[in-house]
Amino acid sequence: MRMPGATRGIARAVALLSGLGAVLASVATLLCLLLVCVSVGARYFAGNPLPVLDRCAGWLVVAIVLLAAPEAQRRFEHIGVDVLTGRLRGVARRGATLLGTLSVALVGYLLLQSGLETVAFSRMIGIMTEVEGVPVWWIQAFLPAGAFLLMLVALAQAATLLLGEEPEHLPDGSEDLPRDTLARGE
């Protein structure tokens, strides 16, 4: 798996960024766990429910989705149907993978653009959350950020494929079980 230096550098930089996103998202998951447990504790032990905690836990979900999705893409983990593509070999397989990564890049681009519009609109109108003093766009900003990262990751994968190289983590069809069946509800 040899790549030209520039491509390898870009791929590594993108991997770093998407890894950072995944770490932040993992912190969000742990915070979610913490908030929910504290919220239960506050109700039972302090007799004082704290609705703010529940709202914050809801926002953390937004962070989890948008910051971890790029890393899932980098690992080619996103859920799909691989009965057919799993049986392809050679050029056909490359073509299918390229189509997949390009479609993700397009989604990333569309989400980036609409995410920026959404944030701009919310700031202009001054839409607020249910928690006093917190504007909605603080949470919405995860959308363009995550979408941008998703687009970068997918573009880097597509570029690698077009150069005739193998992107990292590309499944080779030898695995019996998909990498995370839990995400398929199975």
Binding site: S26, T29, V61, V65, L66, A68, E71, A72, I79, A183
Partner: peptide, 21 residues
């Protein structure tokens, strides 16, 4: 535990991306 958290996070992200779509 940390590996579990990271995997659960990616799993959730994959699922929630589909929910969003």
């Amino acid at each position: 535990l940390l590996d579990g958290v990271q995997e659960a996070t990616r799993t959730s992200a994959m699922l929630l991306m589909i929910i969003a779509a």
